[in-house]
Design a protein around this nucleic acid. Structure first.
Length: 1105
RNA sequence: GCUCGAGUGGCGGAAUUGGUAGACGCGCCGGAUUCAAAAUCCGGUAUUUUCGGAUGUGCGGGUUCGAUUCCCGCCUCGAGUACCA
């Protein structure tokens, strides 16, 4: 009986489905193990042989773990929201749900054919309302949370509200918008509920913000940074432009440090961790504040002065002077104290800042002290406004009442003193330029400042003389797309603003330039340029003839900047002179803090993630807008189902496709979606629902939790189920998700952990990236300008045009089936083909041709030569006609062969080319395996049931060697080598004519994870009623491998010359005696006496002569 | 540019607490079987050679009795990232 793989595979696939063999239980006394694949997006193209590679590896591991007694969760599902289905819908009007359903069906058929041990009862689809209900729910939890930097975790927004109403936000250290103001409890409590919402939105972990986004006009949507590749969209390759839009964002930046630090806790490949680290981009340095100097017209002298706004400054100044002469009692007392410098800082009284006269100010510390009952208006809201404006200008404001000052003077002074000690670097405001630098130690090398063209200060500081030039430059660089800017890294452009900043230490003026080498999106969008220590600054300075100051000791910078740190000694830098980088760095920060113009700071490259997409086929946001403010749709109303639309394009007004949905308003009172006809004003209490949808990564950022408890109606996953399955033990998938899915999933998991919804901080304990399987494209060569094709070996130095030929038209010997090729490309039906023996084949040649790429095709039986194609390894893709379909392979060789061959190709993590020709080796191995169990008459099944271990020495050795190696291989994910091991084992057992059940039964289990169908069939024939997946994995026993002899390699000066069989129990000296006594040794030595003989018993003998 | 990874027969690849380089498979060559082919089975297959041997894991050095494996310096290829201050 021969090996009918098709019949066997169909039989067992049905059996597994019917018996739910791989259904995992959430209540088991067994230890759990969770093996997960990255779920596929069901595209219309179906699977090619590259797709299942990771699935096969994880399936082998899952099956192995079941044999090892684990309760294994091995689910599969579909990431079924996405752009291609929507694009197809736009073109055809076909509802994305329909095409998605069709594609899923096809995927499922293809997956089923390969014999995976998935628990399909737990299937998830991200586009299923029962699933995205919980995606929306998680969104609402994010909306309902803020990030506390002190406790370093996300907390409910209600706790923030409590703090605000008790003590304002002064003491809060939270991840929030940059334009968040400081307010007191009174100020907070006086806000209207809408104003409160506005403030809270600045703290929520998902928030609305006007952001500069990557807009793709062709797709009519925005994309996240990780969806942009080389300045064009990852899908479709469309150009990307920058555009300001109000979008939902995820405050992932709050988690930057934890996402970075916790990489140390997980077992991922170093390269993947590295790309996440790079993406997060931590840099440690300092913020430095450079005050802006202006040069009042007509004045030649250098006179630093804070800019003042408004035309009434002269009037105000007079008023201030008048005020000074008429202090209140409290002011008088306080001024006496402040004037004396007992606090160590200089204060001014009745000082003009912008349009305000403040009571007292310490300019160097940027601290304003206000005393109630002064000459300014005393209304509370005006105070609030004043505070706000002053804070915008970088000042801190503290207030005291008259009574406090008069009666508790010491307490007031203490408070002022404390306030002076705290260092606050003001945000980049009208007063100065904040820069971030990793090298504050080089601050004395600053010779200019550079701002990004988009920097908000540009228009404010530019002098009239420079205005035209600056504006032209800003406009020109705004026009340049991201791609152009990237492509054009080399050319140096910039323009001088005419303005100067003041060096924090030397107090010298530093010219302020604009240059597009400074990125608006990183740091503060401004840099302190140190040409001697930074190559870009150096190039810029050289190009514009800006002086370069060298502050490095004994370093030549005439050719390029000195960017080294380790051997940098600072010179010519005041208090830093003579210090090494390591000492200079902390010292410089210390000094900056002392003068209140700098502060140590860690910066991250990771930006908040834009979460809105102007698409139809995605999760709707559970948000409606009431008076312009976003409000959550109540949890109990979820899911908020995607409405029907007529067209999937944006509306004429440029609104997302959901703008076309008639039924897309929220009735607040009745808590339901209601229909409002276009152009009709909604009645009161009915509000518009968010028109954007969520991005593709929303649903995939938490699906691994849903598998644990897929039917749960009450929660996204029950506490018990999550506690039992914890997180994914083994995750296998492509490395292309390094900075997208894998980062977002970690972010959401940490968030869910913070809020107590799950018990784990990381989603994936171990992660393996499978390498890409590449295609072997086939090329035919057409003579330039002629309709003649020539066989590859005739090319020589002829000029030819290579044309892709479909790989299915080529046989294993790289010969093309010419007739089929002509059918496939009718435009070549009259072409002439010159074969490798120079014979000419044209349409009137009697019928012949190469094979059809089938294993049993024959190149003979036809006249003359063959037409040979060229081969090249390329990415497998439809457009290159090099796609190999797994269905075909399954049909022709079987799923077990496909599974083993994919593993046999090479190391899992490595990219490797697919070559169908090689599959015969694995296929004939399975045939040999089958034969091993079918040694009865006419190939019938036969195993010998004789008493254990009788005369099985060699067979037991083969078996246990295999157990040992294969077990190690699976644990190390070295699946390719275990296939070799099986081949060796079967070859040995065949040679031994082994047909003992004692050997063949465990062998079937060993092979079951790799080739489950044939293993099940053999298992059944061996007399078992239950699936082989319930069988216990064989245990390796050392005793069968104990050897008594060893073929010792005998080396001379490290080169192996011959081997010698010696008993293993010999001592080193006995071995030496035996080796020296051998005539081959004497021959090698040619009479010399060896200087030294190295003996490693059980390993080698090396004779040094 | 930076970061990570990799260079071994005609091809995919194997071997690293340093110890017989090229396992296993493909391909190729020869043989058996066959009218013939497919399938199957057996043998061979790194290079070179004066048949003793010599050489050989990208290149050049080093450590060692011994290096594909460890160290230093290069070269090439692949992946990721990119004016990150």
């Amino acid at each position: 009986m021969s090996y009918h793989f098709n019949k066997i595979e169909e039989k067992w696939q049905k059996y597994w489905a019917k018996n739910q063999t791989f259904k995992a239980s959430n209540t088991s006394s067994k230890e759990k193990f969770y093996v997960l694949d990255m779920f596929p997006y069901p595209s219309g193209a179906g699977l090619h042989v590259g797709h299942p590679l990771g699935y096969i590896a994880s399936d082998i591991y899952a099956r192995y773990k079941r044999h090892k007694g684990f309760n294994v969760l091995h689910p599969q599902g579909y990431d079924s929201f996405g752009l291609p289905a929507e694009q197809y819908a736009i073109q055809t009007g076909q509802h994305p749900a329909v095409t998605t359903e069709e594609n899923i069906k096809r995927y499922r058929e293809q997956l089923d054919q390969i014999g995976f041990s998935f628990d399909w009862s737990r299937e998830v689809r991200t586009s299923d309302p029962e699933y995205y209900k919980w995606t929306q729910w998680i969104f609402l939890q994010l909306f309902d949370s803020w990030y506390d930097n002190i406790k370093d975790k996300a907390r409910p927004i209600s706790e923030l509200v409590e703090i605000f109403s008790a003590e304002g936000n002064r003491k809060i250290n939270a991840a929030c918008d940059e334009d968040t103001n400081i307010f007191s409890a009174e100020e907070w409590n006086d806000l209207s509920s809408e104003e409160k919402q506005e403030q809270l939105l600045k703290y929520r972990l998902t928030y609305l913000a006007e952001t500069e986004v990557n807009w793709v006009p062709e797709l009519g949507t925005v994309l996240a940074n990780d969806e942009i590749v080389n300045g064009v969209s990852e899908r479709g390759g469309y150009p990307v432009v920058r555009k300001k839009m109000t979008q939902w964002s995820m405050r992932i930046s709050a988690y930057a440090e934890r996402l970075r630090a916790d990489l140390d806790k997980i077992d991922w490949s170093e390269s993947l961790k590295e790309s996440q680290r790079n993406w997060i981009g931590k840099s440690v340095g300092a913020m430095v504040e450079f005050p802006i100097l202006t040069f009042p017209e007509g004045e030649g002298t250098l006179k630093p002065k804070y800019m003042t706004g408004g035309n009434n400054s002269k009037l105000l100044l007079e008023k201030a002077i008048a005020n000074r002469a008429n202090p209140t009692e409290a002011e008088k007392i306080l001024w006496e104290e402040l004037k004396s410098k007992s606090l160590g800082h200089k204060f001014r009284q009745q000082h003009l800042i912008d349009d305000f006269i403040v009571d007292f100010v310490c300019l160097s510390k940027k601290l304003v002290i206000e005393v109630d009952g002064g000459y300014h208006d005393n209304q509370q809201e005006k105070d609030f406004l004043r505070t706000q404006r002053l804070e915008e200008s970088g000042f801190r404001v503290i207030r005291f009442s008259n009574e406090e000052v008069v009666n508790k003077t010491q307490k007031v002074l203490e408070k002022i003193k404390k306030e002076l000690e705290t260092v606050i670097v003001p945000p980049s405001g009208a007063r100065g330029i904040s820069v971030f630098t990793t090298r504050p130690d080089t601050i004395f090398g600053v010779t200019f400042m550079a701002l990004a063209p988009e920097h908000e200060l540009v228009s404010q500081i530019t002098t009239p003389e420079q205005k035209a030039e600056v504006e032209a430059y800003v406009q020109a660089s705004a026009k340049r797309s991201e791609r152009e800017r990237m492509a054009d890294v080399k050319s140096i452009t910039g323009v001088f603003t005419g303005a100067y900043a003041e060096h924090p230490f030397t107090k010298e003026p530093v010219p302020i330039w604009i240059g597009d080498y400074v990125l608006a999106g990183y740091g503060t969008g401004a840099v302190m340029a140190v040409p001697c220590g930074d190559q870009r600054d150096y190039d810029f300075a050289k190009h514009f003839d800006i002086p370069i100051k060298n502050i490095f000791q004994d370093v030549d910078i005439s050719e390029e900047a000195f960017t080294g740190k380790d051997d940098a000694v600072i010179t010519d830098s005041d208090f830093l002179t003579g210090l090494h980088y390591k000492e200079a760095l902390p010292r410089s920060i210390e000094e900056l803090e002392k003068i209140g113009q700098g502060k140590g700071k860690t910066n991250y490259r990771l930006r908040d993630a834009v979460f809105s997409r102007q698409r139809y086929w995605g999760e709707p946001f559970p948000i409606y807008y009431k008076n312009g403010q976003p409000h959550p749709i109540p949890e109990e109303c979820l899911p908020l189902r995607l409405p029907e639309v007529e067209k999937y394009l944006p509306t004429e007004e440029g609104e997302p496709p959901l703008g076309r949905a008639e039924k897309w308003h929220w009735d607040e009172e009745n808590k339901k979606v209601v229909s409002i006809k276009e152009g009709v004003k909604p009645p009161s209490g009915v509000w518009g629902i968010e028109l954007n949808t969520m991005p593709g990564w929303a649903g995939s950022s938490w699906y691994f939790f849903r598998y644990m408890d897929v039917e749960n109606q009450e929660r996204f996953v029950s506490e018990e189920a999550q506690k039992y399955w914890e997180n994914v033990d083994l995750y296998i998938g492509g490395s292309e998700h390094a900075t997208g899915h894998l980062l977002y999933s970690r972010f959401w998991t940490k968030f869910l952990y913070d809020r107590g919804f799950v018990t784990v901080e990381e989603p994936f304990k171990k992660l393996i990236n499978q390498g890409m399987i590449l295609g072997q494209s086939a090329f035919v060569y057409r003579l330039e300008g002629e309709n003649t094709f020539i066989s590859k070996n005739l090319i020589g130095d002829k000029s030819v045009q290579p044309i892709h030929a479909d790989v299915s038209l080529v046989n294993f010997s790289d010969e093309l089936d010419i007739e089929e090729f002509k059918k496939w490309r009718p435009e070549f039906k009259d072409a002439v083909f010159v074969l490798d023996n120079n014979e000419v084949y044209s349409s009137d040649t009697p019928s012949f041709g190469g094979g059809r790429g089938e294993a049993n095709s024959s190149p003979s039986g036809r006249p003359g030569g063959a037409f040979v194609v060229g081969r090249e390894v390329e990415k497998m893709s439809k457009s290159k006609y090099n796609v190999v379909n797994p269905d075909e392979i399954c049909k022709q060789y079987g799923a077990d062969t496909l599974r083993m061959y994919e593993m046999f190709l090479g190391p899992l993590e490595q990219a490797k080319p697919w070559n169908t020709a090689g599959i015969t080796g694995v296929h004939s191995f399975l045939k040999k395996l089958w034969k091993l169990y079918h040694t009865g008459p006419e190939g019938s099944f036969y195993v010998n049931d004789s008493p254990p271990s009788e005369g099985l020495g060699e067979a037991l050795k083969s078996l246990h060697k295999t157990i040992k190696k294969v077990t190690e291989d699976i644990e190390n994910f070295s699946f390719n080598t275990s296939v070799s091991t099986f081949m060796i084992c079967v070859n040995e057992l065949t040679a031994q004519k082994c047909n003992s059940k004692e050997i063949l039964e465990p062998l079937a289990i060993l092979i079951a994870p790799y080739a489950p169908h044939i293993a099940e069939e053999l298992w059944e024939k061996l007399g078992h009623a239950e699936s082989i997946s319930t069988a216990t994995y064989p245990v390796y026993d050392e005793k069968y491998l104990v050897e008594s002899k060893k073929q010792y390699p005998v080396s001379f000066n490290g080169k192996m010359r011959f081997t010698m069989e010696l008993p293993l129990d010999l001592s080193a000296s006995q071995i030496e005696e035996a080796v020296m006594g051998d005539e081959r040794t004497q021959k090698q030595l040619e009479g010399r006496t060896p200087k030294k003989v190295i003996i490693v018993p059980g390993k080698i003998v090396n004779i040094v002569g």
